[in-house]
Computed example of a mutant assay.
Amino acid sequence: MGDLSYTAYERRMRKRGVVVLSILGALIVATFIISINTGYVRLGPLELLQTLFGGGTAKQDLILFQFRLPRIVISVLVGAGLAVSGCVMQGVSRNALADPGILGINAGAGLMVMLFIAFYPTTAAAPVFLLPVLALLGAGLTALLIYTLSYKRHEGLSPTRLLLTGIAVAAGISAATIVITLSLTPEKYQFVAVWMAGSIWGSNWRFVLALLPWIVILLPFVFIKARVLNVLNLGDSTATGLGASVPREQLLLLAAAVGLAASCVAVSGGIGFVGLIGPHLARRLVGPKHQLLLPTAALTGSLLVIISDTLGRWIIQPSEIPAGIIVAVLGAPYFLYLLARSRA
């Protein structure tokens, strides 16, 4: 009788997951369309259609295909990458507060990008395909340091120790980043300030092509590992008893999460909260099973970032607010709500 009720529950959750994913997909498409027409220069519906099908003016082609579309695509990819990265870190560490920003992964990636900016003029044609690699190097070294300090041979990976170590390392890296910014020229300092606030600064197709391979390779890998994440959530002893190689799987999943976070930070700057709020929202919508949780988190993160970037371009036209600030404004109240409910 218990097996039948559990099977019915699983079937019901799968149906709910399909509905939730469909709704999130529709919301992303709707926001995508609205975002295309958001900016200082407006394109009417007819002008937009004409431009999409090759009938627009040179100015309309430039605005749509060279400025807005790449930026919107990057917003979608970055949101998915950061949310899935946070979801993996929460699953591996069994800590609901784990996130690339809090654990210092974003800070490590940002430090390498900062060093790159310090030695190259921002007006030069930057080797954009090198940026994700540099960010991955910084994030990877940071993750290795945090993992080494958090892992105990006889205790495994302690969630509390991992979180506290990540916060301490992030604080140290942030201090080093501030020291570097003090030596920058005014032009570079202004660029870095906007970048650190979480601006979608890589708004051309070269940045899309630099980010896309990382998302295309790492997201499917993480989705394939969904069952492993479910097992790891049961605890190290139980996971080992079920045949999982816990240290190996933890390293593989953390490496994928670091790769996703680093590549996204390279083109979007320091956007926080997405890796924290995205998985929380997804978990409330479809439950804790990672087969549904991971794709839902990806779509939730994409929707959060594209809405934030669109609002940032619309609120104070012709200037703009970095998407990272809007994400924090939208995400912080909900997170405080979660904390208040957890205390009740």
Rank of each mutant, 00 (worst) to 15 (best):
M1I: 14
M1D: 15
T7V: 11
Y9Q: 13
E10T: 09
R12W: 08
K15A: 13
K15Q: 12
G17V: 02
G17E: 00
G17R: 02
V20Y: 10
G25V: 11
T31F: 01
T31I: 04
F32W: 07
I34T: 11
V41S: 01
V41P: 02
G44I: 03
G44V: 03
G44K: 07
P45K: 06
L48S: 01
Q50R: 00
G54K: 04
G54F: 05
Q60S: 00
F67N: 00
L69A: 07
P70M: 09
R71C: 11
R71D: 08
V73I: 15
I74T: 14
V76L: 15
V78L: 11
G79S: 08
G79Y: 04
A80I: 09
A80P: 05
S85K: 02
M89H: 04
Q90L: 09
S93I: 01
S93P: 00
R94S: 09
R94D: 08
M112L: 15
M112W: 08
M112P: 06
V113L: 13
M114H: 10
A118I: 10
A118N: 13
P121V: 13
T123E: 15
A126M: 15
F129Y: 13
L131I: 14
A135D: 10
L136G: 01
G140C: 08
L141V: 11
T142S: 13
A143N: 12
A143H: 09
I146D: 01
T148Y: 11
R161L: 05
I167E: 05
A171N: 07
I173W: 01
A176Y: 15
I178W: 12
I180L: 15
P186D: 13
E187F: 04
E187A: 11
V192Y: 09
M196I: 06
S203M: 07
N204I: 03
V216Q: 12
L219C: 14
F223N: 08
I224Y: 15
K225Q: 14
R227W: 06
G235C: 06
G241Y: 06
G243E: 08
E249I: 05
L251V: 15
L251Q: 12
L254S: 07
A256Y: 02
A257Q: 08
C264Y: 13
V267S: 00
G270K: 07
G272N: 00
G272E: 02
V274P: 05
I277K: 00
G278H: 02
R284F: 08
P288K: 01
P288S: 02
H290S: 12
Q291F: 14
L294E: 01
L294G: 03
P295W: 06
A297I: 00
A298T: 04
A298N: 07
L299V: 09
T300N: 07
G301H: 01
S302P: 14
S302E: 11
L303V: 12
L303P: 05
I306Y: 08
L311H: 01
Q317T: 03
A323S: 14
G324E: 06
I325A: 00
V327R: 10
V329P: 00
A332Q: 10
P333A: 08
F335W: 06
L336Y: 14
L338F: 12
L339K: 14
S342Y: 10
A344H: 09
